[in-house]
């Protein structure tokens, strides 16, 4: 299963980005192959519609869960219709490798 995580940088040490639509990078983590892929967010500087555009980007990668600090209402509705689970992390001091460790629980 693939999980998308919003990241503020392109290394596993970068912190989780608290925003979804305008995060710097998306990390797509595959829980089976344990591979990670960093995708720069092309919608970061959008004046509007960054959220929905980012939803499209992560949905096209076939993710089933998205981890971020916050989701807007448009984004939430879209993810609901796509049956993608949202996970909100309140303490955003976690870095990407810590989040991946939490996901890797089997």
């Amino acid at each position: 299963m693939k999980v998308a995580i919003t990241s503020s940088g392109n290394s596993p040490e970068s912190l989780l980005d608290s925003r979804f639509g305008r995060c710097s990078y998306f990390v797509v983590f595959d829980t089976e192959s344990l591979s990670t892929e960093f995708i720069p967010n092309p919608n970061k500087e959008n004046i509007d519609g960054a959220g929905p555009a980012s939803v499209q980007l992560v949905a096209s990668r076939g993710v089933k869960k998205v981890v971020s600090g916050e989701f807007g209402s448009k984004v939430k509705a879209l993810f609901d219709s796509l049956q993608i689970q949202l996970i909100v992390l309140n303490d955003i001091d976690k870095n990407i490798s810590e989040v991946i460790k939490l996901l890797n629980h089997k």
Binding site: K65, V67, F79, D80, L82, Q83, I84, Q85, L86, I87, V88, L89, N90, D91, V99, L102, L103, H105, K106
Partner: peptide
């Protein structure tokens, strides 16, 4: 356990485990 919030899009199934840390 991990302090996160999560939702559950597949509303028919009962939720038993945390989406993040299980």
């Amino acid at each position: 356990a991990c302090g996160c919030w999560f939702n559950h899009p597949a509303k028919e199934d009962e939720v038993k485990n945390c989406g993040l840390c299980n």
